[in-house]
Design a protein around this nucleic acid. Structure first.
Length: 561
RNA sequence: GCGCUCGUAGCUCAACGGAUAGAGUACUUGUCUUCGGAACAAGGGGUUGGGGGUUCAAGUCCCUCCGAGCGCACCA
């Protein structure tokens, strides 16, 4: 149990309160280590003066104090501020140093299985910054949920059939590159095909024809181009996952979900879940306060919607039973998912409440939105490499080999990128200013890495000079750094429960900043000072918490930078 | 037109209905022959888009107006 939970339980038990109230870490340190609004909440229910009730509560609490608590007092309009005894924080330092990188993990397996689908790049198209953003969020949420004692199955889903594929193949044929394609030529081919589809009637007809042939496999040349192009894309995606630091348990494909989805929709058409309309098969979302969408088009081909039904069937076969199936996408798909989820509930009633659409904003440039249609696409690779070059110039270590320099700048670049994606609530759009990200100053991924690297350097240097001890020296004044370190498990818990990595980012930023102040203020290694051993224990705990916290964001820490 | 999301410092973002709305950046100034300056300390900068309401308490909830983004039948 975290300290936060302990204190909350104490409040509930000693005041015999059932209602929801908040126990928070006050922003202002003069308000104690915890503050609660319990008296104000209860005063409302019982229609009495909140300050009077708070006064009464403070009396009860003072008579029932637990070891952890050193002070209770009323403040302001009826808050109760609680201070924690200093030995709690020093024993927390000891606990952290014992647990190392596993501190904060919920080791009690909850028995829950989560299926998390994210990234979803489409073969024959670019792996662009939108996929990257989705990947970074999906991976961090996965790690947070996993950390809390749940089983996580990661899956990606690929649109390996459809008009975009036909456009790319048309482009391949007209560029004359044949099966000798790489990612770059595929990109050019798609862009050419997409452009011509819009502007040239003949090309459009040819592309539609290719699309049919991809589905029915009747043309050997096209089959061949399709097969090699698809594989080139998928191999490339593998490299990107590796570079971004994630592994998927499953890859699902629209070529698989399409026929399954079509079959299920036809079956439930007979049962009245779906309806025929204007030659197509639709789901009447209006019945549920949503809007109607097409599941099978008038040619009988499954749309994205029907494929989603087919995908769920595949997920059931491979991963059931799961407690929650999460799909991470950009918020432009919100309305689509509302309708699809409603239709899923009709088809699979047992999945009601077990499907969650986690939507995030779009990655935008200061100049506006990127568009694949105008060819204005920023690839993930391009942006990572740009950041990497910037990071390389910043490295001051003169003795670093070229190989290490390359590895370190890669790590720093990814940190800069992931930090700027995860630092804000996931629902909102991100305005990504490359120049600012390249400056690597202030609150940033590299800032967090740097603080950790410095702390590690201190520990290395101290090894020959001073012992480390978690025992609190006499007369020790508990520092804010120790107090922040103690909060780590509560922060992860909240981030995981709310699928909100930005709480963790905010926390780690504050923690790093507090460490940097501590570092500037105090001489840590000091053979003359008895407190030095304990200071080192704090530094060690800081390194552990930073390392595991950053890991949950998908960020790793170099040895030096 | 309908629906969803959003509007907080010059810029990029926080704030679990609570105390004096906070960070970074930019700007101004200081620390520095260091346990690693990708650092630290300090300063100015706000009618939380406008107006109404609910509440002991509203950036947060409700209504309304203004503005932005996304989505609304055979793309994904």
């Amino acid at each position: 149990m975290t300290l936060h939970d302990t204190v909350k339980k104490w409040l509930k038990d000693s005041l015999s309160v059932e209602a929801d109230f908040v126990l928070e870490y006050p922003a202002d340190v003069t308000h104690g280590d915890f503050a609660t609004n319990v008296a104000m909440v209860m005063a409302k229910n019982e229609k009495i003066n909140p300050r009077d009730l708070a006064e009464k509560y403070v009396g009860i609490l003072q008579n029932n104090k637990i070891d952890e608590v050193s002070g209770v007092e009323m403040a302001g309009p009826g808050f109760i501020n609680i201070t924690i005894s200093s030995k709690v924080f020093s024993s927390s330092i000891e606990k952290i140093n014992k647990a190392g990188d596993t501190f904060g993990e919920n080791k009690h397996y909850s028995g829950s299985r989560f299926l998390i689908e994210h990234t979803q790049p489409n073969p024959f198209k670019e792996f662009h910054i939108g996929h990257m953003m989705n990947n970074v969020i999906g991976e961090s949420v996965s790690r947070l949920i996993e950390n809390q004692g749940n089983e996580v199955i990661r899956a990606s889903y690929h649109g390996d059939v459809g008009l975009h594929v036909a456009k790319a193949i048309w482009g391949i044929i007209n560029l004359g590159v044949g099966t000798n394609v790489d990612v770059k030529t595929l990109g050019q081919a798609y862009s050419l095909g997409a452009k011509m589809y819009e502007s040239d009637e003949l090309a459009k007809a040819e592309i539609i024809d290719i699309n049919k042939k991809v589905y029915d496999g009747s043309d050997d040349e096209i089959n061949n181009l399709y097969k090699t192009g698809r594989q080139v894309s998928l191999d490339y995606f593998e490299k990107m996952y590796e570079r971004l630091g994630n592994k998927f348990n499953f890859h699902f494909y629209e070529s698989e979900s399409a026929p399954i989805g079509k079959k299920i929709v036809e079956e439930f058409l007979d049962k009245g879940v779906f309806e025929k309309s204007e030659g197509a098969v639709i789901f009447p979302g209006e019945k549920y306060g949503l809007h109607t969408r097409v599941f099978l088009n008038s040619d009988g081909l499954p749309t994205y919607e029907a494929k989603e039904i087919g995908l769920m069937q595949i997920k059931r076969e491979k991963c059931y039973p799961f407690n929650l199936s999460i799909t991470v996408t950009a918020n432009e798909q919100d309305a689509f998912f509302k309708v699809t989820e409603k239709s899923l509930e009709q088809v699979f009633p047992d999945l009601t409440g077990k499907v969650l659409h986690l939507s995030h904003g779009m990655l935008k440039l200061p100049s506006g939105k990127m568009s694949s249609r105008t060819g204005d696409v920023l690839t993930a690779e391009w942006i990572i490499n740009s950041l990497k070059n910037g990071a390389k110039e910043k490295i001051k270590e003169p003795l670093m080999s070229d190989e290490e320099r390359d590895m370190v700048s890669e790590t720093v670049a990814l940190a800069a990128l992931k930090f700027s994606i995860l630092r804000q609530a996931i629902g909102g759009d991100i305005v990504f200013d490359i120049n600012k990200a390249l400056s690597l100053e202030g609150d940033s991924g590299p800032y967090l890495q740097y603080a950790t690297v410095r702390a590690s350097a201190v520990l290395r240097k101290a090894r020959e000079v001073v012992e480390i001890s978690s025992e609190e020296p006499s007369g020790w004044q508990t520092t804010l750094l120790e107090k922040l370190l103690e909060r780590f498990p509560s922060v992860i818990e909240r981030s995981a429960n709310e699928y909100a990595p930005h709480y963790l980012v905010t926390y780690l930023t504050n923690l790093a900043s507090e460490f940097n102040s501590f570092y500037a203020r105090e001489k840590i290694i000091d053979t003359e000072n008895k407190s030095s051993a304990y200071r080192l224990a704090i530094v060690k705990a800081f390194v552990s918490v930073m390392t595991s916290g950053l890991h949950l964001l998908g960020i790793s820490v170099p040895n030096r930078m």
